[in-house]
């Protein structure tokens, strides 16, 4: 199901009231012209899955947070920020989750080039 990022929280909320209360995964795909952010939701008793698809501009990459609706979104959103450079508005991210490097760029974007040495993580 395609949706706009401005309506995302609203759509997720209404799906949650319809029984889609389990967040399976948040991920993204870089199609170079645009970024596709995907939210996999599940209605467990009915055994139905729903995918929310948000297309965003790579130059203005941000999505609203779904932490208010699904606590499970926490680490997936941090991964989204780290791997795709997509800013998640409405929540804090104190540190990187997976990567321990001081470079710039988002590794899972198609135009990524390696530009930094590894460094150990601070406290």
């Amino acid at each position: 199901m395609k949706t706009e990022r401005n309506e995302l929280v609203q759509v997720a909320k209404s799906l949650k009231t319809q029984g889609y209360s389990y967040l399976v995964k948040i991920t993204a795909v870089d199609y170079e012209k645009y970024l596709d952010v995907l939210y996999f939701l599940r209605n467990m008793p009915a055994g139905k899955d729903e995918v929310l698809e948000v297309q965003i501009d790579p130059a203005d990459a941000w999505v609203p947070t779904l932490m208010g609706e699904f606590e499970a979104a926490d680490w997936y959103e941090r991964e989204l920020f780290e791997m795709f450079g997509i800013e998640v508005k409405g929540r804090s991210m104190e540190r990187l989750l997976l990567e321990k490097w001081n470079g710039t760029g988002a590794p899972l974007r198609k135009n990524f080039t390696w530009n930094a040495p590894y460094e150990t993580e601070g406290s």
């Binding site: 991920t27 795909v29 995907l38 996999f40």
Partner: peptide, 20 residues
């Protein structure tokens, strides 16, 4: 637990593979 593979397929190579 449940693993979900989301794959966008291209000829010869995957364009994107996301692993839950």
């Amino acid at each position: 637990g449940e693993c979900m593979m989301y794959m966008v397929a291209d000829p010869q190579k995957p364009y994107r593979l996301s692993i839950r």
